[in-house]
Every structure is written in structure tokens, then in C-alpha cells.
Nucleic acid binder design. Structure first.
Lengths: 184, 184
DNA sequence: GTCTATAGCTCGATAGAC
DNA sequence: GTCTATCGAGCTATAGAC
């Protein structure tokens, strides 16, 4: 009785996907219960059966994002290009998979003022910073390189400047790589 | 009949100050007409006499921010430390004066998804980028340095990490100064 | 020029049918 | 487990007194 390679997503998981997708696409403000339910293809009542309150929806997203961050840290640590280049490069990566979207959605909620999201994001940011510092040695340089990635993310999220950033990405990565050479 | 050094701010100007202050302090979401009116010490009806719609309030803020950006570009061009260091340093500066607040408020509105704010901010960002590139020569390095400032702003706006950033600011500025030496 | 009162809308959440 | 119907709160905007 072999398990399927990709188990059918439960409605609960689809609702979480939809919540993250709407937050990332149109901002936390537009992520109403009705919009999320519509994105997932259910009614508002159907959503509220799985998540009794909107806070419950946020909590579940935070939990999912925490798992994603753990995985991302492992990938960052193992990246041959080095943690700094990995961090900057992935900061502009398209958010096409639901897991990555969860992480990005948390950041948007944090920017919108949600205190739990802000705390969760701050903890993740500190983990990323510590890993970059571990590889580049100098704390100030590590912080600076992390800020390049953070800037990339923040600017891209406004939308209007994303094309220009994508055009400059290779050049920026070259500057970052010069400052934080890949490990031998 | 000499003009006073600091003319008494009109109610209209005070309302604009209040709008920017509330947006910066608690986010665009909390900047309701009532909150803005209370901050300015008038009633909602009083506000709506000066700004018939909320969009009119946003438009006036955008116009004010545009003037502030022009002034900032002049200061940035004249800064002895160089445009890049100036840009990064002022990205974390406390927003204690009403004019600077207007600029920051527009950025928050842009992040919140307001298309006019996003367009206005994109134009300003391009002006800043061009000026940094003019001084450092290399476009990729210019973009990278600008992103350090952008990251600083974005991270500080989430609140939770601001103290850590302030502690690292001098180190970050040293890294930036090394990459973009002050002009002779 | 500033106020109160309220209309009209949207949101989150509840109740109850199926 | 999912639906429709509806309530109460909070928001923008209007109407009209002062």
C-alpha cells in the first residue's frame, strides 16, 4: 500500500496556500476571508470551518513559514556559492511555489504591523544573519550583505522597480561574490 | 511687513502632517480619517472640508513628498561623505521632522499596494540610483549600495530589528564608505 | 471653517440548513 | 464538511446645523 508521491492536498492546506497567495499577490489588506475562500474555491463559511478566526489562519501560516525557514537555512548552509550570494539571489527569486510564498507572506504581514509575524520574521532574520556572519567573518560585512538581500526583497515587493532589479541582479551578485567569496 | 520666519501652519498643512505621522507610526491600515483628524485635533468633518476624499489626502501627500525628494537629492549631491554613504545613513535616520515623514509615508503606502505611491516612489528611487551611479561609476556597485540603504529602511520599518540595525550602522557605513570613497 | 449625525458599504464572525 | 443568511463593528463619505 504505497503512499502517493504527492498526496492530494487537503482543503485546509489549499486554504493556507490561497491565503499566502492572496497576501503575496495583493497585500495583507486585500486578503479578506472572502477573497481567500474564493481563491481556494470554497465559501467563507467553508473557510471558517477549518479556521475559526482569521488569527488561526495567520497562526497556521506562521507555523508553515517556520518549517520553510528551517529548510532554507539548511540549503543556505550547503550552497556552494556561499550563504551571502545564496541569500541575495533567493531574495529576488520568483515566488512560484507555495512554501516559499508562505515565507514571503509572513514578511508582508510583518510589514503590515502584525506583531506575531514581526517576531517570527525577526527570529528568521537573525538566523540568516548569523549564518552569513559565520561564513564571512566580519559582522559589519555580514550585516551589509544581508541588507543587500533585504533591500532586493523590499524593493521588488513594491512591483514597479522589479524589472530594473532583475536586469541588475547578475551585477549585484558579482559584487556580493567579490565581498564574500565562495568557500574553498 | 516682513514675513514670519516660520509661518503658522494652516489646518490643511497640519492635517497633512498628521496623515504622514499616523501612516509612519502605525501603518497605512490604521490611518483612518478619524485617526488622522484626531491627530490633527479636528473632527472627521473638519478634515473632509479640506480633503474631500481620502484619495485627495494621498495626492497631497505625494505632492509634498515630491518636493521633499527634490530637496533630498540636492543635499545628497552636496554631501561631503558621498551620495552612497549619505543615502545609507539617512535610510535609518529617525523620522522626526514632518517633511522627512512625508517621504517615508509614501514608501509605506507603496508597500501597502497604493499604485500612485508606488509610481512616485519608483521615480524617486531611480533618481537616487542615478545619482549614486554618477558618483561611483559602476552601475552594479551603485545598485548594490542603494540596496543596502533600501534594506536598512525596510528592515527598520518592521520594528523588531531596528535596535540591532542601529548597533551595526557604523560598521555598515564603514563598509559602504570603503566601496564608495568620498569624492576628493 | 468646523461640527454632529447618519447613510451605505465591507469586513469578521455566528447560526443553522443541507 | 460546505453552504447561505445575517449580525455587529468599523470605514468612507454625505447632509446639514452652527
Amino acid at each position: 500500500m504505497p503512499a502517493p508521491a504527492t498526496p492530494l492536498p487537503t482543503t485546509r492546506e489549499r486554504l493556507l496556500d490561497a491565503f499566502a497567495a492572496v497576501v503575496v499577490a495583493t497585500g495583507p489588506r486585500s486578503a479578506t476571508l472572502e477573497a481567500v475562500a474564493a481563491e481556494a474555491g470554497v465559501s467563507k463559511g467553508g473557510l471558517l470551518y477549518h479556521f475559526a478566526t482569521k488569527d488561526a489562519l495567520v497562526d497556521a501560516l506562521l507555523a508553515r513559514a517556520e518549517r520553510v525557514v528551517t529548510d532554507d537555512l539548511a540549503a543556505m548552509r550547503a550552497a556552494p556559492e556561499g550563504a551571502a550570494v545564496y541569500y541575495v539571489r533567493t531574495s529576488l527569486a520568483p515566488v512560484d511555489d507555495p512554501l516559499h510564498r508562505a515565507m514571503v507572506a509572513v514578511l508582508r504581514l510583518a510589514q503590515d504591523g502584525d506583531p506575531r509575524a514581526a517576531a517570527g520574521y525577526a527570529a528568521a532574520a537573525e538566523s540568516w544573519r548569523a549564518l552569513i556572519e559565520e561564513q564571512v567573518g566580519d559582522p559589519a560585512l555580514a550585516r551589509t550583505l544581508q541588507l543587500v538581500g533585504d533591500g532586493l526583497w523590499g524593493q521588488a515587493s513594491t512591483g514597479a522597480v522589479r524589472p530594473a532589479l532583475e536586469a541588475d541582479l547578475d551585477g549585484v551578485l558579482a559584487v556580493v561574490a567579490r565581498l564574500a567569496p565562495p568557500r574553498p
